[in-house]
Amino acid sequence: MSDPMKGVPRTDRPLVVAGKTYRSRLLTGTGKYADLEQTRAATEAAGAEIVTVAIRRSNLGQDPSQPNLLDVLPTSRYTILPNTAGCYTADDAVRTCRLARELLDGATLVKLEVLGDPKTLFPDVEQTLVAVKILVAEGFDVMVYTNDDPIVAKRLEELGCCAVMPLAAPIGSGLGIRNPYNILTIVENATVPVLVDAGVGTASDAAVAMELGCDGVLMNTAIALAGDPVRMARAMKLAVEAGREAWLAGRMSRRRFGSASSPIEGLSS
């Protein structure tokens, strides 16, 4: 008879975002690094295949021979995920997505984030919903940053987002997953990939996200502001893989009291 505490294994499924299959479940941002070489090295160590970028005014007057971000992270190797960071209205976010599509030769994958407050950087859900409707109608594949509200997450999926990305904690806070049960509920309800986006601080946070059944984790600050970003990138890669493996393996149930691992019969006396 099998132990009632024994876990139940799960079947692996590849991560598919907007019709493309990815091996890596760790998505990384490209901000806050010391320089482009560190960005490149950390991105490579993370094993990321999808990397976020921001869309900003060109720095006119800089030395034209200086490399830019897409020279070190070429579109031939990485899926570039332009974000709408810094946008506080649906109009601004939609405009940024249109510019990104023009910049990236018609690529339709975007990370939508419409912020509601510069202190917490929590999303403005109302404006996010407005932007999603416009972007989906215009043919964008929208990976949407949202709060950890299961109702809103489901609504965003129903509106046609190709991935739902609840925060673990405020962007750049490193506080880890503040509301694991909500993340779990979002995962259980979803039929599109769910990725924890924002708030991860260290490797165990990423592992927890994956053990909750998330399809991936998107992070930037936890790697870029680590003492050794390249080593932390490697740690995050391993943590995401470990968390995924644990989720697939199916953890044992929790029990309050001890249960001996060695047989209790046959002790020599």
Binding site: V53, I55, N220
Partner: peptide, 10 residues
């Protein structure tokens, strides 16, 4: 005229 490009961001 606005000229934009991709830069580091999360």
């Amino acid at each position: 005229v606005e000229v934009v490009t991709a830069i580091g961001g999360g």
